[in-house]
């Protein structure tokens, strides 16, 4: 699959990460998706999508050192990579063009 090809959920996740700025941990992404986009995803689906976005180079993350509270597991905070930003831009332009062409259908 080409790296700039993203599904609807991936598109939403990228936008959510941008919305959350520096505090984009996976549980927060999941909450915001549910609140703002009315999209409820399972944890398994979310983490697999995050992994996929990482593999495509569309997101990057910083790691907070493991702590005892987290059972010795590290924590990740996600951000959209420059490539991801480019993909979002082109997706937005495409959508705007399509919306412009389709706007007549909503008038009157």
């Amino acid at each position: 699959m080409p790296r700039d090809s993203i599904g609807e959920l991936e598109h939403l996740i990228l936008l959510t990460i941008l919305n959350l700025r520096d505090g984009a941990s996976a549980p927060r992404v999941r909450e915001v998706l549910a609140l703002e986009a009315d999209r409820r995803v399972t944890r398994g689906a979310l983490y697999r999508s995050l992994d996929r976005l990482g593999e495509k180079g569309l997101i990057e993350w910083s790691v907070v050192e493991p702590s005892a509270e987290r059972g010795g597991h590290a924590k990740r905070f996600y951000r959209v990579s420059p490539v991801g930003m480019e993909v979002l831009r082109s997706r937005r332009a495409a959508l705007e063009r399509l919306w412009a062409g389709a706007s007549g259908a909503f008038e009157g």
Partner: peptide
């Protein structure tokens, strides 16, 4: 690999 450890930690936080 990947998000595995992060997932485990996040879940423990949520459990708390």
């Amino acid at each position: 690999g990947a998000s595995g450890p992060s997932l485990l930690g996040d879940l423990i936080e949520e459990y708390a």
